[in-house]
């Protein structure tokens, strides 16, 4: 499974991209990541960008596995707790 996180926007407008293939991870990390993907229901999650507001950070998350893929865009105020945990995990990479 491949997961890509692109962070853009925010007051600073910085751009950062992080890409992880679960096959490149050790056993514990891989299990942890798969668990986070599952609890965030990443293959079925939907984009949630605010209609109002400005300077929010945009988290674009793409997940791919065996021909299936899903891409979503969320922000700090619109993401679930499970998605935040996933984003925090990916950001530390």
């Amino acid at each position: 499974m491949k997961i890509t996180l692109e962070i853009s926007g925010g007051f600073a407008g910085f751009h950062r991209s992080i890409s992880i293939d679960t096959e490149s991870l050790g056993y514990d990390e891989k299990e942890r990541l798969l668990e986070l993907v599952k609890s965030a229901n990443l293959f079925n999650a939907r984009s949630a960008k605010p209609k109002r507001g400005a300077d929010y950070i945009i988290y674009k998350i793409k997940v791919e596995e065996e021909g299936k893929s899903n891409t979503i865009e969320v922000t700090d105020i619109s993401m679930s707790k499970a998605l935040r945990e996933l984003v925090d995990f990916l950001k530390k990479r």
């Binding site: 925010g10 007051f11 600073a12 605010p50 209609k51």
Partner: peptide, 13 residues
């Protein structure tokens, strides 16, 4: 807001 959070924003309110 948040942990080591690198941003400031307007949330619409």
């Amino acid at each position: 807001y948040g942990k080591e959070y690198n941003n400031a924003f307007w949330d619409g309110r």
